[in-house]
Design a protein around this nucleic acid. Structure first.
Lengths: 191, 191
DNA sequence: TAGCGGGTTGACCCGTAGTCCACCTCGAAT
DNA sequence: ATTCGAGGTGGACTACGGGTCAACCCGCTA
């Protein structure tokens, strides 16, 4: 059931949850954004957490798609170019005015216990991103594509966090250099 | 004023806040842990947030001291050995049963806005750790000690996050290899 | 025309942060 | 010896947020 109101709730909640954190946001704020009553809300979602999980699922799909297409746009046709483009994508994300860290990391922090649904969703998203990078690494002929993907993902996570926590704007240069070293060390001198 | 009750409150709250997140913990739980009444609590702290900030300050001091001494213990006398030891320390931290991510990152996620006191404290701690590593890097004769410190810190953050979000146990091997590459690329062939 | 999906209002329960008041106890200062 | 303050108790209270419930309204379609 994808009613327009439901979608508006999801969109509004993503914005709020992302900027302020899940527990910091009152349902009433979201209801006010959408212009709907509490009773009406509970006809669409079972609970605030239910709304959050739905929003995260949407965000998960969106982020994967965005990631894939941005890598294509920035990296050109060669797989190795696309590996380098990963850091371009990250730069673009963290330099946005609305950047407040990776929403999936944020949510994993607010729900620290590994078995919680929100935490599991975060892990799922991380795995998906790693798989995307892993498949490019394989195309690029990396000697161990899975390892390289994990290395690049670690750099990406570190960059998100450092930028978010400290505000350090030059961290992207650090990250880019590291990514370059890792790519070269795994992809030999070929293509 | 460092009364024993105050200290017990701080200790109990750190444990709870770290494991469950700040907003997930009710004051009543902490009061029950310590065995004190609500009224008594508010004679020691102005608010729950006040308690949290005090706890974070204590944790900040503790973590810096632990980090320094563990690096000495694991890294031996040479600065380069101590740089390598950073990842030993990280491994020890993330393999602990009670590991739930870096508490300062967690708190920066729960208080995402950069001007919030808790967020600022998190940034302060990150800077302190970076300074510790930076000074070792300088002793090790790195061609750019500040850069190397930022690189190692980025790896450390990425390792914490990846371990916490995905539970991936092999991330430490990834991190160690990366740290090695960075150290060698900055410290030449000397000592 | 009956039913259903989506909407409204308003009262209500519960848990939790925080306040307030009256009171107790013990150790140090006058 | 008394007084005063620090640290403690209990209990009643407000305010707010998540969530429930009852009663009702509107418009579409079978």
């Amino acid at each position: 059931m994808k009613t327009p109101t439901r979608q508006r709730l999801v969109e509004a909640s993503i914005r709020r949850f992302y900027r302020d954190g899940f527990r910091n946001v009152g349902i009433d704020q979201i209801l006010a954004d959408v212009g709907i009553s509490k009773t009406a809300f509970y006809k669409h979602f079972e609970s605030k957490e239910d709304l959050m999980l739905a929003a995260l699922e949407v965000q998960n799909d969106w982020l994967q798609e965005t990631f894939r297409s941005m890598i294509r746009d920035h990296g050109g046709p060669t797989p190795k170019g696309q590996l380098y483009a990963v850091m371009d994508v990250v730069e673009q994300l963290i330099e946005s005015d609305e950047f407040h860290g990776c929403i999936f990391v944020n949510v994993a922090m607010e729900f620290p216990l590994p078995h919680e649904p929100a935490h599991l969703l975060a892990a799922k998203n991380k795995q998906a991103i790693e798989d995307i990078i892993g498949s490019i690494a394989r195309q690029a002929g990396a000697d161990d594509a899975e390892m390289l993907a994990q290395e690049l993902c670690l750099i990406v996570e570190g960059t998100y966090i450092t930028r978010h926590v400290t505000g350090n704007k030059r961290i992207i240069d650090i990250a880019r250099r590291m990514a370059g070293l890792m790519i070269e060390s795994r992809c030999g001198v070929g293509d």
